[in-house]
Amino acid sequence: MLSRVADSLYWMSRYLERAENTVRQLDVTMSLMLDTGGASDEMRWNRLMTALGKPPGLEWNGDLDALARSMIFDSLNRASITYCVNAARDNARQVREEISTEQWQRLNRLYHQMHSPHVQTQFRSNINDALASVLDGIHLFKGVSDTTMIHGQGWQFIRLGRYLERAYSTATLLEVYHLDLFHREQDHSGYQYLELVGLLRCCTSFEAYCQVYTADLSPDRILEFLLLNRDFPHAIRYSVDRVRDSIESIQRTGGRRPPEELTAGIGRLHAMLGYTTIGEIVAGNTAEFLHNIREQSMLIHELIYRYYVHYSIQSALTI
């Protein structure tokens, strides 16, 4: 497959994952703000911004409505949902012949939805519905991607984009919450409970968590669930396992010798999550552990690009 095509499919998928993540975190933050106790709006907004990588131009100014609006619609702000959807569609448009008609139509519809005057009105009347319909669009796209596309290299690059983004953003989220929430004394006011549910909902994992641990929320278990669960799709370990599967599949179908650095890089992260207990993580430096996950995801991204997309001609000729 052409490197440019792989690049576009990867970013199409990565941007949509980012949009989905942003929608959920924004939704959760705004609903947490309805409960005025526990923490200030400013603190919650700042936490959201830190989890999204501190995008410029969205610093707290007291006007939540305007901030949320630019978070959703400001197509010039790289953190906005519209920007991510636009970027995903731009990437899809450039590989129109590689993706299925169903995929294209879903994504196109989502794009037009973000740009229709209707959605602005919907936003004013009920922001939760508006965000939910965006999420629906993204879910539909993922569904048809899995059911209408050959599960070849192109599909694997789509999965790489999705799961690397997910691992990275979930690690960032946990890092932010870890500083904020996990060091506090247990409090029974109910606000901490709300915050913890919020964290789980940011990863669509509240119900899944309850199935595994019951509704007894404790920071350590949440951390264990979102970090180390091997069966839950939004857990970091699950995402890293999928990244590993996709890279193995790409290497199997390609004719080149598997790049050792990449195999080692992904293996290291996989082992780190597979052979560490939550006890060790909590007893050690948790923040560093989370930070390490992020760094390694970035490294894997760079290695993928170095081997599959931006390789030098000289290196390709000598292989």
């Binding site: 052409l2 490197s3 792989a6 080149r256 997309v309 390789y311 390709a316 000729l317 292989i319």
Partner: peptide, 23 residues
């Protein structure tokens, strides 16, 4: 394959396209 100019490179008067599997 549908290629753009930026997918192509020449070396020793041979044209290659950049794929995930090398040139």
């Amino acid at each position: 394959d549908l290629v753009e100019g930026r997918d192509l490179v020449t070396h020793d008067n041979v044209v290659y396209m950049r794929t995930t599997d090398g040139l």
